[in-house]
Design a protein around this nucleic acid. Structure first.
Lengths: 247, 247
DNA sequence: TAGTGGTCTAGACCACCCA
DNA sequence: GGGTGGTCTAGACCACTAG
């Protein structure tokens, strides 16, 4: 069973209400005071819930006025990351949209795709899989999964990797770093993504960590340029608010 | 004068101490209790400061143990965004690394670079500028700045745009949305970035907003593929922690 | 068992917006 | 002036880690 904190419950409830148009873009949410009453909690707890929505870009808090619901129409939930699903999730093409090309044991090499690897020599699973969008091979993923944390994995688990890792292996995935570049596609990648020699691809290299800061996954993802879109919501870290700035 | 909250002061102080190796990757920060004493504040305030560092990817909090300083060596500060400066900031090439090609008044067109524009018809400044990296033209920016918020701007202000907007115009820039794609470069962009016809570029389209949610800036940024790198730190939104998951 | 972080509370005072 | 969000406090109880 899932155990959710009050702030989580409140946050998710408001997210749902935004999603299903109970609160609309341009509206203000009920005031924090009112939300305290509605959920029977203290103000700090409500504020922590609202802080989550703020960092997701769902609301903007305006001092003296309230919490304004933003218009994120163009941003399919979730807000940030690779848009790797069609807007309207057709029933066809949904199933079987991932094809696992390879799954085998390998020792971590000295370097992988430019990653600096302190973990060289460890055992891991190596897997390659292809994701289709609009029935076109759109993304080729190549990755290592460290056996220390993933002792066993089957082909069918790869299609729903995070579900498998979190629910079956009960790993707590915590954070990852990503690096996006644009590069000429290697010949083998070209072939798989049905590109012509010399074409460019977007390359995403990422390292993913558990909550105890252990690296468990190394991924290189080659994205067909015409199928690639990365979206991002960014809040400016207000280094300092100012009245009258003296340089 | 800048007015910083306690949590900001604490956060920045710890950031500095990490930056200057007073706290090192692999170390634990002083406990929250200890930090309360050190800064003379309550625990919630300390925790808000640590929450900032967590979302920046500087630390990882581990229950029962402490706040571990992460190794973000490969991530030049700031953590997320376009890496648009050389690792070691040489004195040459630093000055004059931006060349303003164009600055003029224009009416917002019906669409711009695929942006859906409700603001069509408004007056704005239109500016194009070129950013050099390693003495090569690396990024071409084309953007609109709405005159409602930017009534006046000079060529020299463009080279330090956000400094001008925040310090001189006292605008409070709050958030922005970004979209990254990979596209064939238009002919004029090719010429400016010294690419050959048909080459690809990374394109970043962004919309930037003030703290009252007003859109004030629309940008399209063409990045030479060999000079483009986007880095990102991502925390997994823990939908639910679980003991034993039932489906 | 002692120490750590995770969550929550019921107040308080302030700055801002608006009628 | 009354309502809003921004910040801070001094407690409390819990869950987890470690020796």
């Amino acid at each position: 069973m899932a155990t959710l904190s009050k702030q989580e419950i409140i946050a998710q409830d408001i997210v749902q209400k935004i999603k299903f148009k109970q609160y609309n873009p341009g509206d203000y949410l009920p005031s924090e005071h009112r939300l305290c009453e509605l959920y029977g909690t203290s103000r700090e707890t409500v504020r922590k819930a609202l802080a989550q929505l703020t960092s997701l870009g769902l609301i903007q808090k305006i001092r003296g006025k309230g919490s304004l619901v933003l218009d994120m129409q163009d941003f399919t939930f979730p807000i940030s990351g690779i848009v790797d699903f069609k807007k309207r999730d057709q029933s066809l093409g949904h199933k079987g949209s991932i094809e696992v090309l390879n799954l085998e044991s390998r020792i971590i090499p000295d370097d992988f795709s430019g990653h600096p690897l302190e973990e060289a020599g460890n055992s891991a699973y190596w897997t390659e899989y292809l994701r289709y969008k609009d029935d076109v091979p759109a993304v080729l993923n190549q990755e290592f999964l460290f056996k220390t944390f993933v002792p066993e994995i089957k082909t069918e688990d790869v299609s729903n990797l995070y579900k498998y890792l979190e629910e079956k292996l009960e790993l707590v995935i915590s954070y990852s770093t990503r690096e996006i570049t644009v590069e000429k596609a290697p010949a083998d990648v070209c072939k798989i993504l049905e590109l012509t020699e010399g074409d460019y691809v977007a390359v995403i290299r990422s390292m993913s960590y558990l909550d105890n800061t252990s690296l468990f996954q190394l991924t290189t993802s080659y994205q067909r340029p015409d199928k690639f879109k990365f979206i991002d919501f960014d809040r400016r870290k207000n280094a300092a608010r100012s009245k009258k700035n003296a340089e």
